[in-house]
């Protein structure tokens, strides 16, 4: 009984010594080395760009850029083309997101439904949209569907087209999310008297949505990025305004850099917002 030296097979509390020291970190794996690398790489890029610019004899004229955002004429503030374009892009993004999610949800539910017609319809839509270039779809919407359906509004034609495009990808994510909820949840819903719609609303979607949020954010980010393609069909969104501005001013480097940055701010804010939302939901569950 007193033989405690040989009882290594039964580690009592504190019998196994925890590692007292962390193994020394290798210097090339340290955060500091990462930062040094990053700065060095950044410096190299700036230097290379600068040299290229000098060789091209490009004259930076950043001072002309504020006019692209706003002007004050007779004490009155007038928004410049980049702000106008930004607002249109935000409008496309906002409506586009709502429609993308609605189309994605409806398609997913149709594919999971018992209705054969519904499933075929969904499948045809998905295959068509996914296997043709977006630019061709935009053209068809704009040059063919718009006159046929008598919509006289390139902005809404564009929003619809983008929503149908992104909605096809969203539907896959939504479908996978719905499928990840176990069959027992449907059955339990049925036994407490819920119909299919109520089961979706109160039982299945609340469990599926948190799983769908991260991949759906990717789709919504794509929506913002792909909205640039609408500059092809005379929607006055950010990219169109940028192109027109450059045609007028020849500030191509400045404008494209700034416009790129504006897209970046939009997409990254969206991702962070969703991440925040997700954390909220998790904290609640």
């Amino acid at each position: 009984m007193s033989d405690s030296a040989t009882n290594s097979g039964h580690p009592g509390p504190g019998a196994t010594a925890p590692p007292t020291t962390k193994p020394a970190q290798l210097w090339w794996k340290s955060t500091w080395f990462d930062i040094v690398q990053f700065v060095a790489l950044g410096g190299l890029l700036v230097w290379l760009t600068g040299r290229g610019m000098a060789a091209m004899d490009y004259r930076w004229q950043w001072y002309r850029l504020p006019r692209a955002f706003y002007r004050v004429i007779d004490g009155e503030l007038i928004w410049g083309p980049l702000i106008d374009g930004l607002l249109v892009t935000l409008e496309i993004a906002a409506w586009g997101m709502v429609l993308t999610l609605v189309i994605g949800l409806v398609t997913a539910v149709l594919r999971l439904s018992d209705s054969i017609a519904g499933r075929i319809l969904a499948k045809v839509y998905l295959e068509t949209i996914r296997n043709t270039p977006l630019l061709v779809q935009v053209s068809i919407f704009y040059f063919v569907l718009q006159p046929i359906l008598g919509i006289n509004n390139p902005l809404w034609t564009g929003i619809l087209c983008l929503a149908f495009f992104e909605g096809s990808f969203a539907s896959e994510i939504i479908r996978a999310g719905i499928n990840s909820v176990s069959r027992g949840q449907w059955e339990a819903s049925a036994t407490v008297g819920l119909n299919r719609l109520q089961a979706y609303r109160y039982v299945v979607l609340p469990q599926a949505v948190p799983l769908m949020l991260p991949p759906l954010t990717g789709i919504l980010v794509n929506l913002i990025k792909h909205s640039a393609i609408l500059s092809f069909v005379a929607v006055f969104e950010l990219t169109t305004e940028a192109r027109n501005l450059i045609a007028d001013t020849f500030l191509s480097f400045e404008v494209w850099f700034v416009v790129g940055g504006m897209y970046l701010v939009m997409t990254i804010s969206l991702s962070s917002l969703v991440a925040l939302l997700e954390r909220r939901i998790r904290a609640r569950g």
């Binding site: 176990s182 027992g184 949840q185 059955e187 339990a188 036994t191 407490v192 008297g193 819920l194 119909n195 109520q198 109160y202 039982v203 609340p206 469990q207 569950g285």
Partner: peptide
């Protein structure tokens, strides 16, 4: 007809009370 399953099949996103009130509120 009520049913009790081997795997319970409770609604994990709802509290015990909400599990019990969901049917009565929405279906009844």
């Amino acid at each position: 007809v009520g049913m009790v399953f081997q795997q319970f099949n409770l609604f994990p996103h709802l509290t015990v009370l909400e599990n019990c009130t969901l049917g009565p509120i929405r279906a009844r």
